[in-house]
Amino acid sequence: MATTIETQSVDQMGGPGSVLARQRRDHAEMDRLMDRYRALEDGTERERVLKQVVQLVFSHAFAEETVLWPAVRRAVADGEELTSRVEEEHQEINDLVTDIERLEPGTAEREEKVTQVFALIRQDIRDEEDLVLPRLQEALDAARLRRLGAAWETVRRSAPTHPHPGVPRRPPGNAVLGVPLSLYDRLRDGLGLGVSGPWGRRILSGLVGLLVSGAVAAIVRKRR
């Protein structure tokens, strides 16, 4: 029986291109950034690091939900139960970060929610590395893990980078809506403070609304 991937070598996980190795690298970077946030005093640099945490967590989770968890459900006998647990954690993280992004930096309420979300992210990492990914490792050979890793990386690089509470956690809904939401998020990230005011939010919300409407219409046409 496969053990946690936390202590495995890269070769044991199927090589650097394996989805297991890619997941663990992202997890390590999340840990590093969260520690960095805690080590900094309030200010611009601390907010920049928090933004990096959010961008990495949400692009990573979107790739999991679009590519990785469907593979787990297909290959692992109790994959539905395992992925449902992680999806619930993802939804909690989504809700907490949505609240964080609405609150003023430096407030006690916001810092409490940051503490909560960091703890939840770390719990999610342990559930994935100790429970879900070892089961996938048992089911797939190294070549298939590398192919899955390539697909996962492709999705991650173009995934949304912020929470979207109403978006489904599973394909096809998340995959179709991911395109306009990724555009929205990357415009927001690129413009930085320019979208924090009401006019920036209205402009981008109007844009993503049009794109989402088109995506939903495409889903309806396909089902007909």
Rank of each mutant, 00 (worst) to 15 (best):
F58I: 10
V117R: 11
R144Y: 00
S18G: 14
L133T: 04
Q137V: 00
A63V: 07
L120A: 07
D99F: 03
A142V: 00
E111M: 15
G79T: 11
P134Y: 10
A108H: 10
D99G: 07
R48W: 13
D11K: 11
I125S: 15
D31N: 09
L131N: 07
L50W: 08
V19Y: 06
V67R: 09
Q91H: 09
P105N: 09
E101I: 06
R24F: 06
D78K: 12
E111R: 15
S18V: 14
E41K: 01
E128D: 11
E64I: 03
R25C: 04
L140Q: 04
T66I: 04
V76D: 12
L145K: 14
P105M: 02
D11R: 14
R24S: 05
E138Q: 11
A75P: 10
E101D: 01
L82T: 10
E111Q: 15
Q52T: 07
R147H: 07
R36C: 09
E92A: 05
L145Q: 07
Q116F: 08
L120W: 01
V53T: 02
E89R: 01
H90V: 11
V132L: 09
T44P: 13
S59T: 05
E109V: 12
A108N: 08
R146M: 10
A28G: 14
G17C: 00
R48K: 15
R147P: 05
R85L: 07
E138A: 12
R36H: 15
G14D: 13
L40P: 03
E101W: 03
R25S: 13
D78R: 10
A77C: 08
F58Q: 08
H60R: 10
R146E: 14
L140K: 01
R48N: 10
D141A: 10
A139M: 01
Q116C: 07
V114Q: 06
E47F: 12
A139G: 04
L68D: 00
V57T: 13
L120S: 13
A77M: 05
F58Y: 09
E92S: 09
E101H: 02
E41I: 01
R36D: 12
D124T: 08
R102A: 15
R38H: 15
R122A: 13
M34W: 15
D95W: 02
T66P: 00
G149N: 02
E111S: 15
L131Y: 00
Q137W: 02
I125Y: 06
K51M: 12
E41A: 09
R122P: 01
L20H: 04
E111I: 14
Q123V: 12
A75Y: 05
D42E: 13
Q23P: 05
R46T: 11
D127W: 04
D141R: 09
P16V: 13
Y37N: 14
V97A: 02
E45V: 13
T107R: 00
R85P: 04
S59D: 03
Q12P: 07
